[in-house]
C-alpha cells in the first residue's frame, strides 16, 4: 500500500473520531453546566425551591418554582388525559383498518404533525381556543400539548401494534373474540410495553415543550393551580419559566431558571431511564 493511502486513512480515522466526539461534547458541557449552576441554586433554596413562588425580581431573595412545577405536573396530567386516549384510539384505527382511506389519511396527517414547528400549535390554540375563551388557561395549554404529543405516541403505538404477529390475532378470532376483544385483550396486551413506551415518549415531549405554551397558558407567576377549577385560569410551567427568566436581567430569576432547568432535565432523564428499562419487549 502506498504511503499516502495509509496517511490519508489515518487522517480520516482521526478526523472522524474527533468530529464524532465533538458532536456529543456539547451534551457534557450542557449537563455539567446545568448540574453545577442548577444544583447550587436548588441546594441554596432547599425545600422552598420546590414549593415557593419566585421572589420579587432583583431582590436578594430566591424564592422557588413551586407554581411552575405544579403547573407542569397539571399540564402533564391533563394533556395525558386528552392526548393518550386520542393517540391510542387513532393508532388502533390506523392499524385495524389499514386498508381504508381514513386510516391512510390519519397515518400521513398525524405523522406530518411531527414536522410542524410546535410554536404553530401554540398559535393555532391561541386563535381557536384562547381568543374565543377570552383568557389564557392551563386547559388551553393542555390542548396544545396534546396535539404535540399525538404524532409521537401514535407512531410508536402504531409500530408496537403492527409488531404483534398475525397469528395471535387469528388465535383471538378463532376462539370467537370480537374485534374489540382482540384489540384490547390480545394485541394491546402483547404490545403493552411498546404502548407504554409510546405514552412515555409523548409525556417526555410534552413536559419539555416550551413554544406551545407561549401564547396559551399566559403566566401566573405566583398562583398555585390547586384543583380542576384552576385549569381554566392562567398558569405557569417549568419550560416557560426558564424561557422568560433567562431573558430577564435579574440574577435571582436567572438562578431560578437554572434550578428549573436542572429539575426539568432530571424529570426527562428519569423518563428516559424508565423507557430503557421497559424496552425489553414481551418475550414471544
Amino acid at each position: 500500500m502506498p504511503d499516502w493511502r495509509r496517511v490519508k486513512d489515518r487522517l480520516f480515522t482521526a478526523a472522524t473520531v474527533a468530529l464524532a466526539l465533538l458532536a456529543v461534547a456539547p451534551l457534557f458541557h450542557i449537563l455539567a453546566t446545568v448540574v453545577v449552576r442548577g444544583g447550587s441554586v436548588i441546594l441554596r433554596g432547599g425545600v422552598s425551591f420546590f414549593t415557593d413562588p419566585p421572589a420579587y425580581p432583583g431582590s436578594g431573595e430566591l424564592g422557588g418554582v413551586g407554581p411552575a412545577l405544579l403547573g407542569t405536573l397539571w399540564l402533564g396530567l391533563v394533556t395525558s388525559l386528552i392526548g393518550v386516549p386520542l393517540a391510542l384510539l387513532t393508532a388502533i384505527y390506523i392499524v385495524e383498518y389499514r386498508e381504508g382511506r381514513l386510516a391512510r389519511v390519519a397515518r400521513v396527517f398525524t405523522s406530518s404533525l411531527l414536522e410542524v414547528p410546535t410554536v404553530l400549535i401554540g398559535m393555532l390554540v391561541f386563535l381557536v381556543v384562547v381568543v374565543p375563551m377570552g383568557r389564557y388557561s392551563l386547559a388551553a395549554g393542555s390542548i396544545a400539548l396534546a396535539i404535540v404529543m399525538l404524532p409521537y405516541t401514535v407512531s410508536y403505538v402504531e409500530r408496537a401494534l403492527e409488531g404483534v404477529p398475525r397469528t395471535y390475532r387469528e388465535a383471538g378470532y378463532s376462539i370467537g373474540m370480537t374485534r374489540a376483544q382482540v384489540v384490547f385483550q390480545v394485541v394491546m396486551g402483547i404490545a403493552s410495553r411498546g404502548v407504554a413506551a409510546g405514552i412515555l415518549i409523548g409525556v417526555a415531549k410534552v413536559l419539555s415543550e416550551t413554544a406551545p405554551l407561549l401564547f396559551t397558558i399566559g403566566s401566573a407567576r405566583g398562583s398555585y393551580p390547586t384543583g380542576p377549577q384552576s385549569l381554566l385560569e392562567p398558569g405557569d410551567a417549568l419550560p416557560l419559566l426558564i424561557f422568560q427568566f433567562a431573558q430577564t436581567p435579574y440574577s435571582n430569576w436567572q438562578d431560578l431558571a437554572w434550578g428549573a432547568a436542572l429539575l426539568l432535565t432530571l424529570i426527562i432523564l428519569a423518563i428516559f431511564t424508565l423507557l430503557r428499562l421497559l424496552f425489553r419487549e414481551v418475550k414471544l
Binding site: A171, G176, M177, I190, K283, L284
Partner: peptide, 29 residues
C-alpha cells in the same frame, strides 16, 4: 368461530397471559 376451534402452525399461546388464563380466556369471554 365460537362453534369451531383452531390450532395454528406456529404455537401461539398469548404471551401476556398465564398458562391458566390462556385456557380460560375462551370460556371467560
Amino acid at each position: 368461530r365460537r362453534r369451531t376451534g383452531m390450532v395454528f402452525q406456529e404455537p401461539n399461546p398469548f404471551p401476556h397471559m398465564t398458562i391458566y388464563d390462556n385456557v380460560a380466556i375462551g370460556p371467560r369471554i
